[in-house]
């Protein structure tokens, strides 16, 4: 057994689907308070604890009891990093919508949606796989990875 914290990998996939749906709704309505709520969701997962993140709670209460248990486990660190990347995009998007720069809001939300959808549909975590690439950019996501 690995000592690193791990979770049932189906939880994050479920959360990615919910995130995708929320972000599509944001793009359709342009209603920024919904995106602001998603920022909070990302923040809880990235900076507080993954198991306290609202969609994880939803998964444990509603979905997990209907599925069989699994021995498959996934490390928590990459997932939290991905939530941090989502947080950054959603935050920029919220500020864009809220302060009258809807184009910025739309673009940032679209990037967050692309990443969430790739995770949900393909199990791909772009933020994780390209961590090295992000790391090389000046002023990058270093703050997210430092905790």
């Amino acid at each position: 057994m690995s000592a690193r914290p791990q979770v049932d990998p189906r939880g994050p996939r479920f959360a990615a689907w919910v995130t995708s749906a929320v972000l599509v709704a944001v793009l359709l309505t342009g209603w920024w308070p919904l995106l602001a709520a998603q920022v909070v969701v990302f923040a809880v997962g990235a900076f507080a604890s993954l198991s306290a993140a609202p969609y994880s709670v939803l998964y444990r209460v509603l979905v997990a009891p209907r599925l069989g248990p699994t021995d498959e486990r996934e490390d928590v660190a990459p997932l939290r990093f991905a939530q941090g990347v989502g947080f950054a995009f959603a935050l920029v998007g919220t500020l864009g919508y809220a302060f009258g720069v809807p184009a910025l809001g739309v673009v940032a939300t679209a990037f967050a949606l692309a990443a969430a959808f790739l995770n949900a549909a393909f199990g791909l975590c772009l933020g994780c796989e390209t961590y090295l690439l992000l790391h090389r950019l000046p002023g990058s996501t270093r703050t997210v990875s430092d905790h």
């Binding site: 359709l28 679209a110 949606l113 791909l124």
Partner: peptide
């Protein structure tokens, strides 16, 4: 309307990227 097009376009592009990366 723009939002709907952006959402649709984003999902399409992401799907193409997903299949390409998977391949």
């Amino acid at each position: 309307m723009t939002g709907a097009l952006v959402a649709l376009g984003t999902l399409l592009v992401a799907a193409v990227v997903g299949f390409a990366l998977r391949a």
